[in-house]
Every structure is written in C-alpha cells, then in structure tokens.
Design a protein around this nucleic acid. Structure first.
Length: 586
RNA sequence: GGCCCCGUAGCUCAGUCGGAUAGAGCGACAGAUUCCUAAUCUGUAGGUCACAGGUUCAAAUCCUGUCGGGGUCACCA
C-alpha cells in the first residue's frame, strides 16, 4: 500500500464532497494536487498542496480552502491532527495505530512488500543494456550500464510492469571482421607458425589464443589451404559465438541473465533493414543529400562531400539528418539499429529503454527520432546515459594497464570485491553523473561504505532474532507468533520513525520506477539502515529500549516483530538490487 | 563552432512529476558501548544551491543567456 496514494484518493474524495455541498465549485481539476511526505518531518507525516493548486480555479484564498478541507480530513479515522501552514499546506499527522498497521503489512507480505500494480496496463517494456561488441570479454566500463539496466528491469517488475530484458549483439560490422582475422592469426599460431607481433589494429588480447587453438584442434590445418573469403565467415561465427559465451558468463557472475539476445547480423540477413529503408522511403523520410563537415574543428582528413541516403531526423527533433548507408554501400550502424528498434516495436514493446555509455550521448536524439518515426508515434524510447566510472585504489586513480598488474575486465573487478559490492555501489549515484569506485573503500567495513552499512543493519536484525530465544526464554519468534504480537506496545518515537521509513518503501518503488532511476533504491536502503542503527543505539542510552527484555516477553515479542519487519524490507530492497542480504558479518 | 550531461557545505554526494527553515557521509570539535561489538549512534560548526535574467502563489528543481568541468560531432560501434 502506497499510503500517499491512499490519502491522495481521500483528499480528492473530500474535495468532491465539498463541491457537492456547494462549499467549493464543482468540476475542479484535481490532477495537479500532490500528496507527499513533507520535507521537514516537523510538518507531520503527510502534506498536500491541494488548497494552493485549487485557489485560482476556485476563485478563493488558499487558506480558506485549506481550512475547509482540513476540517474534513481531520475527521478521518487515521488522522490525529491537521494543520494549515505556510501559504496553504495542509499537514496531517497519523495515528500510531496506522503505522502499526503498516508494520503488520510488512509481516504479512514478506519481501513482496512494496510490490505494486503501478505499471499494470501500460504495455510491455523492453530494457536493452550492455549490448557490447562481441569482440572480447566485458570491461569494467560495462559494469555500470549492466547493473543500471538490470536493476531498472527488476525495479520495473516490482512496480508491476511487464518487462523483457534484451542484449543487442553488434555482430555485423567491421569490428567482427577484424576479430575473425585476429582469431585466424591465433589459429596459425596454434598450428605452430610464428606470427610475430599482432599487427596494429588487430585485437591483441590473449583471450583469442584458446579460440585459435580450439579451431586448430577441431579442423587441423584445413583453413590454411583456402582463401580468406572461405575461412572468414567460419572464423567470424565461431569467434563471436565463443565471445558471447564468455560475455554471458561474465554477466552471470554479476547476477545478470537477459531474456532476449538479438543478433544485428541476423536482422540484416533477414532483410529487416531493407524493410525499414523501404518503409521510411515510402513515407518520404529518406532523401539523398550532402552533409556538411562539422564546424569549429578541422574536418576529418578523408572528408569528401558526397551525396548519401539521409533519414529526416530533423523532423523528429534531431539536429541534422542522419546517413543510413556507408560509402561502400553497406548499412550504417544507425540503420541497423533502427531495424532493431522497429523489431522490438513489432514484438509488441511500446515502451523501450536503452542503457548507453556516455560516449554514445550524441546518438540519443537520432535514435529517439527514429523510434518515433518508425512506430508512427506509438512507441516511446527513453535512453539512460551512464557516465564514466573512475577506478580508484585507496584514493589514487588507477592506471589501467595489464603490465602493471592492474585488472581491466569486469570479471577481475567482480573477483576483487564481489558481485554484491559491485552491484550496490554502482547504484549509489545517479547514472548520469560521473562517479569514483574505490577498490579499497568498496570492501571497507565502515559507515562510509553504504553496502556494508546496509548489510550490517540486516545482520544486526538477524542476530537479534537468532539470540532472542536465549535471552528471553520461551519466546516464540515464528512468523505466526510475530504476526500475533501486540504492536501497540511499540510507541517510542524512534520505533515509530523506523516504521515510517518502512512504510515509505512502496512509494519509493513506484517513484523510482516511474523516473527510471534505480539508484533511489540504494539511497532508500541507506536511510532505512540509518533509522535502524539509530534505534539500536537508543538501547545503549536507555536499557529499557533494548529489543530484548528478559522480564517483558510481550514487549520483546512486539519488538521482534519490528526487527523482523526491518530485515524484511531491507531484504526486499536488496532483492531489487540483486544483492544477497547477509545473516552475519563477523 | 553545434549538440548532450554535470556544477549543491572544505571533500564525496542526496534532494520526491516545482513546495515550507536545502540534507547525509567524510574531515573538525564535544559526547555515548551488557543486543553484531566505538564496524554504530547523538550533538555542534560549516551554504549568495556556478552566475544573471524570466515563468509561478512557490524555483536547487522549469525556460533563456553567460561562465566552468566532461563527453561527442559523415563513412566506428
């Protein structure tokens, strides 16, 4: 239950009631009214701007409307206090019973707490992420996009959206040709030939050595006796397949398994790009024109003004029209990607989300333009840019060179700090701001490290629950017993504060999902952990606030319900992040 | 030169479809331990929200311009 939505409905209802009585004009637009937590908790639990929003259309003073509305809201059973404040805010305070009922919700729903029907009926959503060239193992630079995409998908699912996760394999361009040629060199090497240095422009990585060896073992020297146009397709396919196996393994190590893998090459082979071209031509969205070289900096050396097939991206908000064919007549990456997005649309996705690296920022407008064009405005594309992550080691920027013994692959990063740490820390910042990732601080057990701080709160909860039967003999901490606890015994302000943070979880899920901002989950968990640690330390100052009270089994039982619920909400949030909650730290 | 992202406390960053007196951690200072442990908590100090206009009852948030940092700019992906 999103309590703010609950009270939003209540506010609307009371406005209608006032209109029915003639105290307010009929037919007021209530869509701009918000009901939300006040920024300052001193202003109560729930606040609404209704009076200020309605003042102008109603032709009344905000405070007069506020007084009318407040009087009615004050009569609601869960509301203990109303106040009209500032320019016309209505602040509500809610009863302890209301918060106890939310605690009971958590106990009843378990980690499903926060699940929402928010996204129901909005149509299927496709989240495409990683989509790295299959020319080598995933790099650290891919980590952020991978985590952001995956957690966004999980978040959307929790909020009730119908979500499919997707990886677009860029296996059609010149890069995979180079990859195949590089693998061929390694194949020759495996046959015992001296290949010398790997030529400039080839992929020199050692990860291709086993690929060459595998082909040599399977086929012997047979590819040495044929022309390039014969061996190239085989090497391309074989190598790309091997690379994708590795990519999937690396992603699996991060806890990521995507639903659909779409091959660019197969799209092209199936004629999808030709079809897009024809569709756009038929609608007069393609013409032949000459692009101007970029201003303000010297044009590329091989620049030649030449007529090319251009998509009228400017009609859909882009800055220039974009080429669809290269000089050799083959499709541009962009043309293929239009086909990719049209394919998604044809598969029923009216909402698409792409996760890009910041270096693809210049590509955003044209892709959005293409999706509008190709779906005739029926599909929507949102693109989340992930800014760079600077790897640090104890405050010092890391040079990424293999020779220096530093690692460069995603797998190495995971091996160094663990998948849970990578996942959590990648989400402690907004995705479109640059961030630092310090390998030393990442595994430090201190307040500075949010992943530790949150895990520590969970571990503390679990520890208390484990030790409860020893401290308070005869105490039953089973789910049934906790569900039956007398929650009315939880009346201390610090206890209520904790319950209020828990009750904010369903709204957090919805808001984060709607904004496509998964980092809000990590921020929320930090807040929740903070409320729990604060309550914990109250027990150090005042022994009567400790969770375990040997002489008061009923109080203890109620507090165990609170502790259990805290662990549950933390686990629910960590589940969205794909992070495993720990039972103990030690 | 065009376009995109960013600019919030000394540092690293939050900031809810525009809401009231802008928050947290680190660092500084003063305190608090029979539960997982001072690995945590409480308090104090610290701000022209880069700058200038505009829209609004209300702007860190939206619009325009300027400055600063980063990214990117046919035929790579």
């Amino acid at each position: 239950m999103n309590l703010f939505q609950h009270f939003q409905a209540e506010v609307t209802r009371q406005i209608e009631a006032l209109a029915a009585e003639g105290a307010l004009p009929a037919g007021l637009d209530t869509s701009r009214i918000t009901v939300e937590p006040p920024r300052d908790t001193g202003h109560g639990d729930v606040t609404t701007n209704a009076a200020m929003v309605l003042a102008k259309p109603a032709g009344m003073k905000p405070r007069d409307i506020a007084e009318l509305l407040a009087a009615r809201l004050d009569a609601l059973p869960d509301v203990t206090e109303t106040e009209v404040a500032g320019p016309g805010f209505i602040n509500l305070r809610l009863s302890d019973d209301f918060w106890h009922a939310r605690l009971a919700d958590v106990l009843a729903e378990g980690t499903a707490y926060g699940d929402s029907g928010f996204g129901k009926g909005t149509g299927p959503v496709n989240v495409e992420y990683v989509s790295a060239n299959p020319t080598g193992p995933l790099h650290v630079a891919h980590a952020r996009g991978a985590v952001v995409g995956d957690v966004l998908a999980r978040l959307l699912k929790k909020a009730g959206y119908d979500v499919t996760t997707e990886y677009y394999i860029n296996d059609a361009g010149a890069q995979v040709e180079i990859l195949a040629t590089s693998a061929y060199l390694r194949y020759c090497q495996a046959l015992g030939e001296d290949i010398g240095e790997i030529p400039e422009g080839m992929y020199p990585g050692e990860y291709l050595i086993p690929v060459g060896r595998a082909i040599a073992e399977a086929d012997g020297a047979k590819w040495r006796e044929v022309d390039e146009d014969v061996w190239l397709p085989h090497f391309r396919e074989f190598t790309v397949a091997r690379m994708m196996v590795q990519v999937k393994e690396d992603l699996a190590a991060l806890g990521i398994r995507q639903d659909v893998f779409t091959s660019e090459k197969e799209l092209v082979a199936a004629g999808a790009v030709d079809a897009v071209y024809k569709t756009l031509s038929d609608r007069d969205l393609i013409y032949t024109g000459v692009l101007e070289p970029p201003k303000g900096k010297p044009p590329p050396e091989d620049w030649e003004p030449r007529p090319q097939s251009l998509f009228r991206a400017t009609r859909f908000g882009d800055d220039v029209d974009r080429p669809l064919k290269k000089s050799d007549g083959s499709w541009t990456y962009f043309a293929n990607d239009i086909a990719n997005h049209l394919d998604k649309f044809r598969r029923g996705f009216t909402q698409m989300i792409d996760i890009f690296g910041a270096d693809h920022g210049g590509y955003v407008k044209r892709m959005k333009a293409a999706v509008v064009a190709v779906s005739e405005g029926k599909a929507e594309l949102d693109i989340k840019l992930c800014q760079m992550v600077h790897l640090m080691k104890d405050g010092e920027p890391m040079r990424m060179s293999k020779r220096a013994g530093n690692f460069v692959t995603l797998r190495d990063l995971i091996d160094e700090v663990g998948k849970d740490v990578v996942r959590f820390l990648m989400l402690t910042r907004k995705s479109d701001t640059q961030m630092e990732f310090d390998l030393v601080k990442a595994v430090e057990q201190s307040r500075e490290n949010p992943v530790f701080y949150v895990q520590y709160a969970h571990a503390r909860c679990r520890s208390v629950l484990r030790s409860a039967p020893d401290e308070v003999p005869g105490l039953d901490t089973s789910a049934a017993a906790l569900a039956d606890a007398d929650l009315g015994l939880l009346a201390d302000p610090a206890e209520l504060d904790l319950m209020k943070v828990m009750a904010a979880w369903p709204r957090t899920v919805e808001q984060a999902a709607e904004a496509h901002e998964p980092h809000r989950v990590a921020i929320y968990l930090n807040d929740l952990a903070s409320a729990f640690h604060a309550l914990w330390n109250r027990g150090n100052e005042d022994a009567s606030l400790r969770f375990l009270q040997a002489n008061a089994p009923e109080v203890t039982r109620a507090r165990m319900a609170l502790v259990q619920a805290t662990a549950t909400v933390i686990a629910s949030g960590l589940d969205v992040l794909g992070v495993t909650p720990v039972e103990e730290l030690r």
